[in-house]
Design a protein around this nucleic acid. Structure first.
Lengths: 193, 193
DNA sequence: TTAATTTTGAAACGTTCATTTCAAATAGAT
DNA sequence: ATCTATTTGAAATGAACGTTTCAAAATTAA
């Protein structure tokens, strides 16, 4: 019967995500989110309850957007090793796209909130499990194909890759030289060959 | 002629550092620092001017404390590779010392404040240069000795190590299994052999 | 047009924020 | 003991915080 939601929730989450990504959770104020979305304060509270919950929705959307890009990568690559390289290339592309790299929202969130906020910590753990799962599958497949060496168990390699990815996201925040970053990627992936 | 500073400034910085390390810069309130140090509000402002400046002093002290541990490592190790392994072992020790790992203050600071706060960003860049310098020297020496391979230029390996160290500090915040962490270290260092 | 329901705007909530103020207490130097 | 510089305590500053409130405007189904 009545008025229906007028604004694009997906867009609003994207706008809010940009702010959280740039400033982090604590340093982002509700006023920042009002400004970034153009929404009214009340509308934000109507739709997202509170800042914390909005942040979780942003995290989830961010994770899901990455999941889509990851799926594309898995489809277009011909070997597991190439998939891994493409993931790093994706990071590299994001880093060099803008002058100031904001890093990874999820890595930043780990640094800021891990072990402080229970639901967030749970999200981060689940996220890690998901990512490790993907990487384990890739490494195991590569080892069976013979394109990745068997010096280490595939689970060990997966955690190694996850670790280096997080480090790479941090490094990109202060290093903007594309060649240096590419060299880091090749060093990381050389380990697997 | 008059009353002289009564409190131990070094201790106060250590106490403040603990809070910043645990909660990050933004989420740490002046009240938190008053509580942690036992100092009066006025005394803190008298001695450190403001929160921002106190934080910089904490960062510097943290960096310097790490520098000392680093020097010890460089002295006691017999090869550059061993030095690198000892650095990771130091991180591992910190991670497994307490149930909840706070990560590295400087890595966390990078994630929170890089490209947002000019003096802090400058500190982070200088810190990176210092650390890269040490790592470059180690790798170069190892390559000359023949204990580190020459697949990559020593500067590339140094940035690789710096990246993996940052990643390792993040990983430790969610992974507490010592064996898994040790396996990551060995994978990282195997690259150099 | 009316009724139902939601968005909106703007103000206010109480709390916490970083920082300032200033008189009182303190303690070394003379 | 007196002078002098500093630390202290406690209160106050004004701004910003996340969140709530609620009447008015808006919109759509009946």
């Amino acid at each position: 019967m009545p008025k229906v939601e007028t604004f694009d929730k997906t867009l609003v989450i994207k706008q809010a995500t940009d702010v959280f990504h740039d400033k982090g959770y604590s340093a982002t104020s509700m006023q920042d989110l009002v400004d970034a979305t153009g929404l009214n304060r009340s509308s934000i509270y109507n739709s997202f309850d509170n800042k914390h919950n909005l942040f979780i929705e942003c995290l989830t959307a961010y994770q899901s957007a990455f999941g889509s890009k990851l799926s594309e990568i898995l489809l277009k690559s011909t070997t597991p090793l190439e998939s891994i390289q493409f993931i790093f290339d994706l990071y590299l592309k994001e880093m060099t796209a803008k002058k100031k790299d904001k890093g990874c929202l999820i890595v930043n969130c780990t640094s800021e909130m891990a072990n402080h906020d229970k639901p967030i910590t749970l999200f981060l753990q689940k996220n890690q499990e998901k990512m490790l799962g993907v990487l384990e599958d890739l490494v195991e497949k590569g080892q069976n194909e013979g394109t990745i060496n068997k010096n280490k168990h595939y689970k060990a390699y997966a955690l190694y890759l996850f670790t280096t990815m997080q480090g790479f996201r941090i490094t990109g925040m202060l290093v903007s030289d594309k060649e240096q970053l590419q060299s880091v990627i090749s060093t990381i992936t050389q380990t697997l060959i």
